[in-house]
Nucleic acid binder design. Sequence first.
DNA 1: AGTTGTATGTACGGTTCCGCACATAAGTAC
DNA 2: GTACTTATGTGCGGAACCGTACATACAACT
Lengths: 251, 251
Amino acid sequence: MPGPKNVAISNRQLAALPQKDYQQLLAYLKPVELEFGDILYEAGDQIRYVYFPEDCLVSLLTAVDANRAAEVGLVGSEGMIGVPVALGIFVSPFLAVVQGAGTALRMKTVDFRREFGKSAALQGALFRFTHLLMIQVAQTAACNRFHVVTQRLARWLLMTRDRVHANEFLLTQEFLGRMLGVRRVGVTAAASALQKLKLISYSRGNITIIDPAGLEAAACGCYETVNSLYAKAKRSGSKSDSRLKITISKK
Amino acid sequence: MPGPKNVAISNRQLAALPQKDYQQLLAYLKPVELEFGDILYEAGDQIRYVYFPEDCLVSLLTAVDANRAAEVGLVGSEGMIGVPVALGIFVSPFLAVVQGAGTALRMKTVDFRREFGKSAALQGALFRFTHLLMIQVAQTAACNRFHVVTQRLARWLLMTRDRVHANEFLLTQEFLGRMLGVRRVGVTAAASALQKLKLISYSRGNITIIDPAGLEAAACGCYETVNSLYAKAKRSGSKSDSRLKITISKK
DNA sequence: AGTTGTATGTACGGTTCCGCACATAAGTAC
DNA sequence: GTACTTATGTGCGGAACCGTACATACAACT
């Protein structure tokens, strides 16, 4: 049963915790300012901290070679960065890079892992989020296979919008190209198309979503597919079919 | 510490368990014959059973609409089908379809979930596998974005080879097209190219890998990237940085 | 006002893959 | 052998996107 609502807590994973479990974590959570472009982990890095975004946005990328990488996941205040730790893995498989500046609460991995063993609510929440992330990554795989740049761009803008809770954000086409794994001019063309349809406007990195509903229509169904699952998870909050109690055995 | 090697156990998740934990599961595990094309779950289905493949091969697919889906994961005797259950989720996000006939040991989800709560070794093994699956799905996302059909086909054949432990298998180009998310003729062209290079041979669904090393060279790096992580996980066996004890609270 | 740097737009030939239609070939049934 | 089904091969116009190069536009600084 969740405790009283922690209204001041902007990270949803933390907000969903019972008061007691949250208080327990609080001693270890330190706010950090994350800047655009900050790298939280390179692929293969030790995960020294886990992060609970408050109003920042973090992209997870998988590389295929030195020059080419594609975003496979996008995490904001609804989730956590460092999901592998919940699975007992302490090496990041992804490049995690800050895509929207803001604050996050972070915690040393060792502290988190210990507290994780004590809080069934935290376990449930993070296992569910891990599952959602898996779905998001898988949908991205299928989306990359079938959908054209314009649709993928529209989807990406909507996903970003959902996570920063704003219709305006700062992103160059060069950057968008890196996320979507296309040339900059590919983004130029797609963005121009969306602008001509009066769904977005942009100039020198400043992107504004003018018509969210129209943009959703221009996006592929992958947006709605994943989004509805996130929304469902949000509604069901900390309720779960599974209640686990995990303890880490000493040594 | 794992118990004596269970040499007769062909599923690696089960084989890695301590003798005691394995014996505990044995009462619930029933062998089933899986035929080509069998659907274990549709996307959105309740997960009524989890499956431990012995010599069969199962594809996980994500759909983007009624006609189009792409494979995002491939699971053989090294893994388990029904990973979400380990995360406390009992609905499959993927279509799970048998791609190579054979046997699997299966278990009712409710039984599995209960036993899962009792065996730290089982938890560790499955959490690690969940993580590997996440990596595989993510690599597929990036691969779909950047690599051409011939490379992806080569990668797919190698992945299949690793999982069925054979250089020969039965698969039509029509089927391969569905897995890779391309037209049949796209597969025809790619397969012809690989055959001309004397890396494979095929006729009417019968594919033989002639030159595994050459095929690997023709595949994209995604194969080696993921494969090395699987190999590493295999080597480290049931050793883990994390030892957890999970118990399911009553009600 | 002029300079510099960054962001965006345009152009072009080449490649990959699409959708579709039709042709061949290998196995299966009668 | 003939008919039928299944698997594979070929052809063709078009769309999307690539790599590259070059042009324009806005912003900030001097």
